[in-house]
Nucleic acid binder design. Structure first.
Lengths: 357, 357
DNA sequence: CTGAAAGCGCTTACAG
DNA sequence: CTGAAAGCGCTTACAG
């Protein structure tokens, strides 16, 4: 650890935190605070290059860092985007967050995160807390569940924030009335079905989440719409609901088999985790994923390459969605609501080989 | 979206962002700003309950949120911990970050994150940027790589921050001179070897990261130390280096086989991802993980349950490490450096069955 | 192009 | 217990 010896003048005295301020820089450069402030701002007009050089030099020598809080109380907003994320351990969210962090860094913003545990009431609390920071924007990501009352409260809290000049952007599903970087679930699901059709699959079984989120709905809508268009049948008994986890997928297979899933030729799960669980259950039941019956997941986050055989899935360009959310937050929005969507990409792997006959 | 009709008095006028300030609350309650400030602070002494009630009521009615920036410029620090994380998509980091977010929320702090892409130079840049926010503490997590010069610059930048009154805490490996919430790698590795010994394994092969991080070193030290103590032999040829990824683990197996890994009875990889890759490679080479030759990973993050057979690993209590880092950041540190470590937990699964003979 | 001054929203001694 | 006043570190019209 390097210690600047000039810093502790009187060793006996309790060392108080000493921060270099604009005042110090101005003094060191022999100019006024106003000039120092302008010299440090690359966008400021009317600064002589000599003065600017002296100030910059003094700032570097002193290790000056502008106080973001003071700047924010002057300008009204913090150079920050606040991200509300339901669960950072979910690789789906982690991928979006990665995109947000990258783009925020490039745009000179810091990104702040708060966890919300999926619950809307939690999210309301967090929005309230975040409002204190006066960030340029709040980005909401991840599925949320809660009552209609809670949802209204959340929208009210967000509306308050926008009235204060804040910007709200959704990164994910298109379910709240704000600018949205859309995760292309519906189209991805449709594309998946079309790709499987081309491989020879004709009768899918579905494992869908047991709660009614926008994500679940869009996935199912995409599947059903493409199936209908292509003349594939999805009967009543071919859809089961399960918790959106690996274990949920595992448990769903039993119920599918009770209903005669052997007559189906491919199992589609709403997430990779569910699909991976389903694969384990199939194996435990004596079925071999990829021979006789296919399996496909959704999201293409992690683990799809590491099961045997590798899992077919759909890449939703999540990091791009996160980056796009930051860009939406940065550019002024007019009256109308904006949407940005990316192209999903179906990734065919070993669980869905070409089907003969 | 709920709009408060009292808010837009003159429809023709450009709606300017209007924020409720302490002044507004004080006026609404008929008290001074000073009194309003005290009434809003639960810890303030000498506030009559009548006054407090009126202020609290006014604040709620108006949707008042204190301006964290203004508060911070007054008090000198932001109620915030800044977390520097190399890559949020790495489930190892995500798990620590999850612990940080949870504990920060409970302590009334917001958590801010910045990505550093593993590079020390990036980290220096980010520390500098974060210093502007004057957070109570910075928490560093994840492995970092860089030259000795860079490392010195990083430590200098961090030292500057501590001189300003900031606190630095490491969540992870014990490689920088600050308070540390220690990931118990070394002990976890030792415990793993001891557990495998009890199952009958005698001659491990090692797949270790090809860079010389503290994490890699501690894992290897733990393995070697326990093996020596138990009289197990790890020969020259039984250690290969590989990139710390799934593909790295995959590639390592080929080299292990060239060197006659068949004579080994268990393959130990420094991370789960490497172990999972190794399993795929073994299968491709005609070996079956768990029969004839065992496999064990490390970290126990995700995916260990989803490969076939399930992967033996070591749970490093990462979320607790993250939470402990926040607690270290919150409690005053004396002169001496503090360390908190948790108990690792060996999780035996299908890849390391009891070995007969 | 540069400086003196006001102001951002808060907290906290200091007097009452 | 309450209020008037100073001050935190910055930015930005406003005069020169």
């Amino acid at each position: 650890m390097t210690i600047d010896p000039t810093d502790d003048q009187s060793p006996g005295v309790q060392a108080r935190p000493s921060t270099v301020t604009l005042r110090d820089v101005a003094d060191a450069a022999g100019v006024s605070k106003a000039s120092a402030s302008r010299a440090l701002d690359p966008a400021a007009p009317y600064v002589s290059s000599g003065l600017r050089a002296r100030v910059l030099d003094a700032a570097r020598r002193l290790g000056y860092r502008p106080n973001a809080s003071a700047r924010a109380t002057t300008t009204g907003a913090t150079a920050m985007v606040a991200v509300l994320v339901s669960d950072i351990r979910d690789p789906y969210n982690a991928e979006i967050v990665h995109g947000v962090i990258g783009q925020a860094g490039e745009s000179g913003l810091v990104a702040t995160f708060a966890g919300t545990d999926h619950a809307i009431d939690d999210e309301i609390r967090v929005v309230r807390m975040m409002r204190s920071l006066r960030p340029h924007a709040m980005i909401l990501t991840g599925a949320r569940s809660g009552s209609t009352v809670s949802r209204a409260s959340l929208e009210e809290e967000l509306a308050r924030y926008t009235r204060e000049g804040g910007r709200v952007v959704i990164a994910g599903d298109d379910e709240l009335p704000f600018d949205t970087a859309v995760v292309p679930r519906r189209q991805g699901a449709s594309d998946l079905v079309a790709a499987l059709f081309r491989l020879g699959y004709r009768s899918p079984a579905l494992i869908r989440p047991d709660h009614d989120s926008a994500a679940a709905r869009q996935w199912e809508d995409g599947i059903v719409e493409a199936a209908r268009r292509l003349g594939m049948r999805i009967g009543e008994g071919a859809v089961v609901r399960a918790p959106m986890t690996r274990d949920g997928g595992y448990g769903a297979v039993g119920r599918l088999i009770e209903r005669g899933a052997e007559r189906r030729d491919v199992v589609l799960a709403a997430t990779d985790a569910m699909a991976i669980g389903a694969m384990s259950a199939m194996r435990d039941a004596g079925l071999t994923p990829g021979s006789g019956i296919g399996v496909a997941g959704f999201d293409d986050v992690v683990g799809t390459e590491d099961v045997t055989p590798a899992l077919t899935s759909v890449d939703l360009a999540l990091a791009k969605v996160g980056a796009a959310a930051v860009e939406l937050a940065l550019t002024a929005s007019g009256a109308e609501r904006r949407r940005i969507a990316f192209e999903p990409r179906v990734v065919l792997r070993g669980t869905t080989p070409v089907r003969l006959g």
